[in-house]
């Protein structure tokens, strides 16, 4: 799952939210502050703005970062307690509102709704197998939130296999389904790409891409 940038007015409420997000499999980070000269690392998959007790969430820091780094399509969640809600502008610019206290299940639903609201990602657009995730809307693959750098055809092959799991595909079918035209390499191309994808997936997940001897390949979910 992807990085989350946390904007917290105080340490305590920030780390509480961080723990909850980590429990759901996200990687929470303290968000960079452009006015403090912080350089952004990689692009976050989500931003969470946490207001201190009785206060509104720190929307202004986020807006500065947005303007500076073109983050307009990053989903944003605004979280406050009942007192903070009264202190907030009624029409704040965020995709979802979360009022503390909340349950982990509610957080999960709010995150999913924010992601759909921001960049149209439906649940079905993120395919996962354990900690391996493929985001079909953004073409990004990750393991435990760490991005993997596939070439386009490696990505397409993995996507096809992950969206059709636990079925055996002969090399020729994969060549037709994924490449779709006559390629210089012939069916051997499939073997080469499977080998490359496995190398990039690393030991833990490579085993999911199973060779079925003298038939083809299967992705085990």
């Amino acid at each position: 799952m992807s990085d989350v940038w946390l904007y917290a007015a105080d340490e305590e409420s920030g780390s509480e939210m961080g723990r909850e997000l980590a429990r759901l499999g996200y990687k929470p980070y303290r968000a960079p502050d452009p006015s403090a000269g912080d350089e952004p690392g990689r692009r976050p998959g989500l931003a969470v703005l946490v207001g201190a007790a009785g206060e509104a969430a720190p929307l202004d820091v986020w807006q500065r970062a947005c303007r500076r780094h073109d983050l307009t399509d990053v989903p944003v969640i605004f979280t406050v307690d009942a007192g903070g809600l009264r202190a907030s502008q009624p029409l704040f610019e965020a995709h979802e509102l979360l009022v503390r206290p909340f349950s982990p299940a509610e957080l999960e639903v709010r995150v999913a709704r924010a992601r759909r609201g921001a960049n149209g990602i439906e649940f079905a657009e993120v395919v996962s197998a354990g900690s391996l995730e493929l985001n079909l809307a953004t073409y990004q693959a990750s393991i435990d939130g760490q991005p993997l750098d596939f070439t386009y055809m490696e990505y397409e092959l993995l996507k096809f296999l992950m969206t059709n799991p636990n079925r055996v595909f002969p090399r020729e079918s994969l060549l037709n389904a994924v490449w779709g035209y006559d390629y210089y390499g012939g069916a051997r191309t499939v073997d080469v790409h499977v080998r490359r994808v496995r190398a990039k997936l690393g030991e833990k997940h490579a085993a999911r891409l199973v060779t079925i001897r003298s038939v083809g390949y299967r992705f085990e979910r």
Binding site: R43, T138, Y139, Y152, Y155
Partner: peptide, 15 residues
Amino acid sequence: EPDHDYVMRTVRERG
């Protein structure tokens, strides 16, 4: 083309 889109999107997502 989808492969162009892949490149443009990846460049953006990965920074």
